[in-house]
Design a protein around this nucleic acid. Structure first.
Length: 643
RNA sequence: GCCGACGUAGCUCAGCGGUAGAGCACUUCCUUGGUAAGGAAGAGGUCAUGGGUUCAAGUCCCAUCGUUGGCUCCA
């Protein structure tokens, strides 16, 4: 008998050789039907693999990330089988599960394939899935594995086997298809009820551009047809919310070939939105003790030699601008910190002055490969809501906490309630990769961990993800469609204070080196606005709306009164417009709805007589008559609540 | 940067060897209309750019530029 410990802490005894599936069966038949795989002492196993010793067992279903991963990995094998059956001679690279779905890299040889072939492949796929073929695991020797794939003529699998130690190699077979695979897999193919091939793309074998390019087919599968339908709806919704589409429709921003790729042009409405974001953060930062600074868009080459960026990124940056007479070289600034270091050095600093918090909405320029550019999320010129905090080592933790407060305040105001924080620490095994003393790293890492803990953040910790100059805390938000985005970041830096020889005089009258904290709650305004657009589908909170209301006179006769309504409402915080077109009211309403203007004020005979406005709320409809004062109060109230 | 797809009116797209099209937007006129499209007329295009094939090229081929899905990279 062996002892099996379940996640709730309960311990059950079973015969040696029991499987996860059988354990599930002992709990309930329904559970057994849904078990896809199991975590045995932290490792994922097939649900039909015998357990031979005492173990901690967690049964994995579709509701567990591990269950989904297993499901999708198995789904990739079925895709391979379908492809092999439709296109004999196809060679296979790798076919892993990804965040949503899976892909398989394949070499079709001479054969060309396109998304037009998806239907045919999907049909074959489901045909195979319905055969209820079991996934069976076999341990093989390296020689046998090599023989098998040599015979099959699949050089990619051979390339993979080459790097595997003998004795750890396993094959999985379902139906007519056998693949080199570590596993685990779902019990049989019939768990897969719905499939959708989503995408096709080229990918180099092992991500190496000197190697052959394979065809990568992306797909996603589900245990229920209805889940596929939901997924497809979500994709549709995501398309509707695409910030590039909404940015054009709502006239927020554009790009121009003539200006250059990756260089966004902010249109008046987009600028109004962005200005509101900026002044919102400026106010919050002013309260939090930041001082605003302004620095130029270029910096002397020497600045970046000092900062170390020239050495590390100089060759991959926009190339320098040269002065015609003196031949001096200037770089477009790729970040603001070196400039801010020079501001710190403007005069001697005392420990009593610290922390000094220098903030700048600084526009920076980074060369991104042309294939990488994407709407506002990936551009070559963007504005960071940057700030650098220069503090004493003993102040790091408290400053971190203050920054976390600021970031959370920003998220809350903008409706991002679903976020996690990633603590990125250095890889303790590779200390030479990083600069700075052990003591300082220890101090900074502890400061971050404690600060995050004391703020009650939901965190994940990643070793080896720190920057070479210090640990960091990154914020990931989930948007309304459940997609993850990395937004704000807070980073500790020992490198720049060292390189710029920043100092302060301590209470001991000796020179000390300050610690620098880089932080940006939005990250880049461009990227943030893109995420915000997709998060709220263009229906921004009222206080951010470029235009908060529109006055809609029913006919020419009420124009004068309508104009007076507009004048009495417009002020610094509230901004609206008027629709004086020779159109019927239904038309004006429709157009205002499409433009996502939050409030429509319908004005006709009635309203003019009694000095009121009829208010219609975007997508909600008529909300009745109000006096102008009442409407103003209503707007101000709504702005206050969301801010 | 690499591989694939795409580039036709301001926008969304049809046309795929034989005289450039539609809807919306725009302009003018009619209409003064009460909560998601009133009517009519008009204007608008070197079919991304440059070469080539052909009697004839948005349409086929090549190159360039741009957009896009991936790959790789991201201070």
């Amino acid at each position: 008998m062996i002892k099996i410990t379940l996640p709730d802490g309960s311990i059950k005894e079973f015969e040696q050789g029991i499987t996860a599936h059988q354990i599930a069966l002992s709990i309930s038949e329904g559970l057994a039907r849904n078990v896809l795989a199991a975590e045995i002492n932290g490792q994922t196993w097939d649900s039909n693999r015998p357990i031979t010793a005492d173990a901690n067992v967690k049964l994995l279903t579709w509701n567990d990330a591990g269950g989904k991963a297993t499901f999708w990995h198995s789904s990739a094998h079925v895709l391979a089988e379908a492809l092999e059956s439709l296109y004999p001679g196809t060679k296979f690279g790798i076919g892993p599960a990804i965040e949503t779905g899976f892909y398989y890299d394949v070499d079709f040889g001479e054969h060309q394939i396109s998304s037009d072939d998806f239907k045919r492949i999907e049909d074959k796929y489901l045909e195979i899935a319905r055969t209820k073929a079991e996934f069976t695991r076999t341990a093989v020797t390296k020689t046998d594995a090599i023989d098998y794939f040599t015979l099959k003529g699949d050089e990619y699998k051979l390339d993979l086997i080459k790097d595997l130690p003998d004795g750890s190699i396993t094959f999985y077979q379902q139906g007519n298809f056998t693949d080199l695979c570590r596993g685990p897999h779902i019990p049989n193919t019939s768990f897969i009820k719905a499939v959708k091939l989503t995408n096709i793309a080229g990918a180099y074998w092992r991500g190496d551009e000197t190697k052959k390019q394979l065809t990568r087919i992306y797909g996603v599968t589900f245990p229920k047809q209805s889940e596929l339908s939901e997924y497809l709806l979500m994709i549709e919704e995501a398309k509707k919310r695409d910030h590039r589409k909404l940015g054009k429709e709502l006239e927020l921003f554009t790009f121009s070939e003539k200006v250059g790729m990756g260089l966004p042009l902010w249109l008046p409405k987009g600028t109004a939105l962005r200005e509101r974001l900026v002044s919102f953060l400026q106010k919050a930062q002013q309260k939090a003790g930041y001082e605003q600074v302004i620095t130029p868009h270029i910096g002397h080459k020497n600045l970046y030699i000092t900062s170390g960026h020239y050495e590390k990124y100089g060759a991959d940056a926009f190339q320098p601008i040269k002065t015609p007479q003196e031949g001096e070289e200037f770089f477009l600034k790729p970040m603001n910190c070196p400039h801010h270091c020079e501001i710190y050095k403007f005069k001697p600093r005392s420990y009593k002055d610290l922390p000094i918090r220098l903030a700048e909405f600084g526009t920076v320029y980074r060369y991104e490969q042309s294939g990488e550019l994407h709407g506002l999320t990936r551009v070559r010129g963007f504005t960071q809501d940057d700030a650098h905090i220069f503090c004493r080592p003993d102040q790091v933790k408290n400053e971190f906490k203050k920054v976390i407060d600021l970031v959370l305040y920003v998220f809350k105001a903008l409706g991002f309630d679903n976020y996690t924080a990633q603590i990125s620490l250095r890889d303790p095994a590779k200390k030479t990769k990083y600069i700075g003393s052990d003591e300082n790293w220890q101090l900074a890492e502890n400061a971050i961990i404690e600060a995050a803990q004391e703020k009650g953040l939901n965190t994940v910790t990643e070793l080896g993800e720190a920057a070479f100059y210090g640990p960091k805390l990154d914020f990931m938000v989930k948007d309304a469609l459940g997609r993850k985005w990395q937004l704000g970041t807070i980073q500790v830096d020992y490198n720049l204070p060292e390189r710029f020889e920043l100092e302060y005089t301590g209470s001991d009258n000796l020179k000390h080196r300050p610690v620098m904290i880089h932080r940006a709650p939005f990250g880049s305004l461009e990227r943030f606005v893109a995420v915000l657009i997709e998060h709220c589908a263009g229906n921004f909170p009222l206080w951010l709306m470029p235009q908060q209301f529109i006055v809609l006179p029913i006919s020419e006769k009420y124009e004068e009164y309508a104009k007076s309504v507009l004048d009495s409402l417009n002020n610094n915080d509230i901004c609206g417009l008027i629709d004086l077109r020779d159109e019927k009211i239904g038309r004006k309403i429709r157009d205002a709805e499409i433009k996502k203007i939050p409030y429509m004020l319908v004005i006709g005979e009635k309203e003019m007589e009694s000095g009121v406005v009829s208010v219609r709320k975007h997508s909600a409809g008529d909300v009745g008559e109000m006096t102008i004062e009442a409407f103003t109060n209503h707007l101000e109230q709504e702005i206050k609540i969301s801010n």
